[in-house]
Design a protein around this nucleic acid. Structure first.
Lengths: 201, 201
DNA sequence: GATTTGATGGTATGTTTGTACCATAAAAAC
DNA sequence: GTTTTTATGGTACAAACATACCATCAAATC
């Protein structure tokens, strides 16, 4: 056999090719052939590492949700020392706004998968429900901490505020993907709203 | 020839069949055959009235955006006599939350088209940019009127508030489509936020 | 050194798709 | 009453797709 190959690495390389073609031509237009061409390998090899197209698509969505979680955690970790709840909330929400090309690819394909999951039973939607629920709980905790520390109005309903925050950042991120807004405008709107939630910061 | 047929009516009937199948199996899975079956006619007839699949898809997206505008205007007109800016804003935003089956079909397919327009040059995205921009301007006007009448804080930035409102209602509507939230919860979150914007109402 | 096995290429096949083509009945036009 | 139109059905066809199959070469194993 030729040089032994790291299967995980090969699979990641193929999945990245899928994400690029999906972001370029749409998830519906992804074929075994287009992925193979983008990855610079033969169709046979895509089959070899993923067997069937469905498994390839499933592997891609798994990688997508995994990376998404990592990105959010990276951002939270990247805020400076002694972060306030506002810093943390802002970091989490800004991840939804695509800025560089890589995040644009990720968010676009992620959105395509999310919409697809509504009608495709194979995607079950499970992955698209768990993450937001977890994030909403996390935001509620941060808001309640802010209320206890006096950074924000204790009369607010933390649960509703978290729901609105999450929806607004998702909506702003989507509008950037659709070309309705620049990333800068979306970030400004989000920061404006946070400024109202956390007066005096 | 057999009984003369109202072409516009026939085309509407076929487009409605397309919307139903798109909401059921996904826009990507729509075929001439599936539309014909859903409409209860032969494939040849779909060709007869739309010639090509691309024209059928274009006609459907046009009908979709037209109906969407009508629905918003209907809601605004349906609010009682002497409506306050808050009533009008609420009516506009609540349209984004799918409740009955018909609005669910409309919003789901509309979202599928919007995401598709990012990668499909034939859709150009033009239709998906004009409507939201117009709506945002309308909301800014209502918020400024509310500020002048003292219904809301004059220090608010009406433009940013409108952007956040629109994004939040789009995000909440999307979360309902994805099955993350019930329509009732989405409406409650929206009303909660409006309650903060318009204190004492 | 012989043999097994992992990584790859190429090709064949059955299915589905959009669309073009052929046909026909029946109402309208003359 | 003949001759156009109009609305419809059925079918044929080329392209694209996912996938199964056949083949090969080279590293590892013994």
């Amino acid at each position: 056999m030729p040089k032994l190959v790291d299967h995980d690495e090969r699979r990641a390389q193929i999945i990245d090719a899928l994400l690029r073609t999906a972001a370029d031509t749409g998830l519906h237009a992804v074929t075994m052939r287009s992925v193979a061409v983008e990855a610079g390998i033969s169709v046979r090899l895509v089959q070899y590492y993923f067997d069937t197209k469905e498994q390839l698509l499933l592997a891609a969505v798994n990688r997508l949700t995994t990376r998404m979680g990592e990105r959010v955690r990276d951002r939270v970790r990247a805020v400076g020392p002694a972060p306030t709840p506002r810093d943390i909330v802002e970091a989490v929400l800004l991840e939804a706004v695509p800025t560089d090309e890589e995040s644009r690819v990720f968010h676009l394909v992620h959105t395509e998968y999310a919409v697809l999951s509504v009608t495709d039973p194979a995607l079950g939607g499970r992955d698209f429900l768990a993450a937001p629920d977890e994030m909403e709980g996390f935001l509620v905790g941060q808001l309640e901490a802010a209320q206890r520390s006096g950074a924000t109005d204790p009369r607010l309903d933390a649960r509703q505020e978290a729901a609105v925050l999450l929806a607004a950042s998702a909506g702003l991120g989507l509008s950037v993907l659709l070309g309705q807004r620049t990333p800068e405008d979306a970030i400004a709107a989000l920061r404006y709203h946070l400024g109202r939630l956390f007066p005096g910061s």
